[in-house]
Simulated assay, not measured.
Amino acid sequence: MKLSNLAATAGVIMSALSNPLWAAGTAEATQTESTTISIAGHEVPVLKGGLYDRYRSNPPLSVIESEAPDVDLSWFKELRKEKVDIGFESYSPNFYYKNSRVTVIFTADLNRLRELMPAQVLEKVQPIQVWPGRGLVALTAYAYHFCDNDSYNEIGLSVITNRPGSSSLGPLTLMSQAMSNDFWGYVLKLPVNTELARVRGVVGYNLPKWLTGIHYRETDQSVVVEILDSETGKVDVTVEARKLDDLSKKVSMVTNSFTNVDQQGRLTTGYATSRQLSHASSTSAETVSLGLTEGSLSTFIRSLKLGKMLKYEYVPEFQSALYSPRPL
């Protein structure tokens, strides 16, 4: 197998974006009435009467079936939630019933990736080296159209790593993860567009989330994502990704795990399992356009010295279960 093909198979790293109006094809929240709840000492606005307001991450599947009758809930019926304390009372796993995403895998400067990872994380995992001096990052735009947290948009930027406790053997490690559909990463950036998603992610999952505008829309031929700079409100990063025609309807199960440090300085790990219902991929650089400006996220991405795009994944329909982190 060619090196580029090995690297390309890692297209599902990490481990979110519209609202229940996904049927109309929009990913922008149209919530007009909110209420405020308390999560771990944070006052958080949520959709009044929404799933989170009513059920705090534990809605009965009968309610989901009633509110989204065209969603297949068979997989979720096989899973069991448990009450957990993650800095606040919640339930694990968190269910994402109807979602979309686009993921782009780039090569990046290996030394820079190592600089960005905490020393204690590097003791357990390393960025996968695909060739001398080059590692891999995954840039993903998620659209969580209908989930336990209502709906929101999320952008994930992650370093692709080996599994904790295993050797990092470059392309061989990547091949092993691809064969098992079990991928590992370290999350560098994870902006979201609701305060509920931000607080839950920071407090409960130890993830680098912040609140900013994220516009996720579709044209006849493309998915267009605009990430705003949280300080200036101007467009920071733009991703335009082509809708691929050769969609597979074969269900594909993928696990994405991450290693990080919690608020007490302890190493933790968490993961999400995704059930991909419609998906396609390409290795053609012409399928994706990445637009950078002088914004803060653009500046950060430039510092990674991105190289060749190795794979693009177009997943217009998937479901997911996100499990709470545990000590590593």
Rank of each mutant, 00 (worst) to 15 (best):
L3A: 14
A8N: 09
V12F: 15
M14W: 09
L17G: 15
A23I: 10
T36E: 09
T36I: 11
I37G: 01
E43F: 09
E43V: 04
P45D: 00
L47M: 08
K48H: 11
L51T: 05
R54A: 04
S57A: 12
S57W: 00
P59F: 13
V63W: 06
L73V: 05
R80F: 00
K81S: 11
K81V: 10
F88I: 04
F88S: 03
S90R: 03
P93T: 09
F95S: 04
K98Q: 11
N99G: 04
V102R: 12
I105A: 05
L110G: 01
N111P: 02
R114A: 05
A119L: 05
Q120T: 09
L122T: 05
V125L: 10
P127D: 08
R134D: 00
G135N: 04
L136E: 03
A138R: 09
A141P: 08
A143M: 11
N149A: 14
N149I: 01
D150S: 12
I160Y: 11
I160P: 08
N162H: 07
S168F: 01
L172D: 12
T173I: 01
Q177E: 14
N181P: 04
T194H: 05
T194D: 05
E195H: 07
A197Y: 07
V199F: 04
V203H: 03
V203D: 01
Y205Q: 10
L211G: 00
T212A: 06
T212N: 07
I214K: 04
H215W: 06
H215A: 14
H215D: 15
E218R: 15
D220N: 14
S222C: 09
V223L: 14
E226T: 14
S230W: 11
K243Y: 08
D245T: 12
K250V: 08
K250L: 06
N256C: 13
T259I: 15
T259G: 00
T268F: 10
A272C: 13
S274R: 15
R275L: 10
S278I: 07
A280R: 01
S282M: 10
T283A: 14
T287E: 06
T287W: 02
G291Q: 09
T293P: 06
E294L: 08
E294H: 11
S298V: 08
S298M: 03
S303G: 07
K305P: 00
L306T: 02
G307C: 11
G307L: 12
G307W: 13
K311A: 15
Y312N: 00
Y314T: 01
E317P: 00
Q319W: 07
S320H: 06
Y323L: 04
R326A: 13
